[in-house]
Design a protein around this nucleic acid. Structure first.
Lengths: 149, 149
DNA sequence: AAAAACAGTTGACAAAATCAACTTTATATG
DNA sequence: CATATAAAGTTGATTTTGTCAACTGTTTTT
């Protein structure tokens, strides 16, 4: 068995433990009234400030029709706003309203709290190690850009 | 900010990187004709050899009606079989047929291959480290039972 | 023996996601 | 320039996925 095959097996074992541990297999986002897909879209817009639907489709790999409807719903709810892009009138610049920003921040905070709950009983020392191991994994797999919220 | 809150934030950053990296946010299982939920059920039965619907519901946290239908479909497809439990006639002992076993093994193999593909270009040394970091995370979070396939 | 709890099935329904057709605007090619 | 081609986004139809509650038959509790 190759090293890569062995590692793949280890990774899958990790996934089988890790995903259910943090409830990462559900479709509702936490206790909230939003789906995971919706939350991801909100985070994406939050991260970029201004972004086109096209780019959301690309980075999140979701159907453009599906996204279109969600954005419509968000707009109706006063969560996102759209302005025509000056250059290309097909594109719209999507951004969060003040309400949308605070909603997204609230969701992030709740998500953090939810994760925090699972960490109860773990020593500060081990928590530190946890962070390090994760950072190392990201480094090895080639990540490490993008900010947090 | 508490250590736990800081760690929660790190974990969420990890998740945002890790989940899309291994395509863990989709509902279709790989290229296969099975959903993630179906694959998880198959793995569960595979792991236990014989298991009741009740226990699948408990460990996977899915709706029993939903499961009932999936099992019906699996049975119709010759993938699982059910026998009445001797003791309690309400329960049925669910197990995989030979066909179901080879299907599950095929899915696992494909999943492994899929993961392996993402590992291309990483040195054996780093792969080793990857496995270690993951094992450490599992240890810290309190896991470490169950086998692999 | 009656009541309560449990395993599983089914029907009705809601939510999530996909697919293809279509409109409008921009870009490429002759 | 003109026409073809492609891209961004919208919409309708449909499928897939998941939820909820009612119901049947069985076991356990009291």
């Amino acid at each position: 068995m190759s090293k890569a095959a062995q590692t793949a097996s280890d990774i899958r074992r990790f996934n089988r433990f890790y995903l259910p541990f943090f409830h990462l297999l559900t479709q509702k986002y936490l206790n909230s009234e939003y789906s995971v897909a919706e939350a991801r879209i909100l985070y994406e817009i939050y991260d970029y400030g201004k972004i086109s639907a096209r780019d959301i489709v690309k980075t999140l790999c979701i159907d453009k029709g599906y996204l279109s409807r969600m954005l419509k719903k968000f707009e109706a709810g006063g969560i996102v706003k759209r302005e025509e892009s000056g250059k290309d009138s097909r594109l719209s610049e999507i951004s969060l309203t003040a309400k949308g920003k605070s909603l997204t921040e609230r969701l992030a905070a709740e998500s953090n709290l939810q994760v925090e709950k699972e960490l109860a009983g773990i020593s500060d020392d081990d928590l530190e190690k946890l962070s390090c191991h994760m950072a190392e994994i990201i480094k090895i797999l080639g990540g490490g850009r993008d900010g947090d919220h």
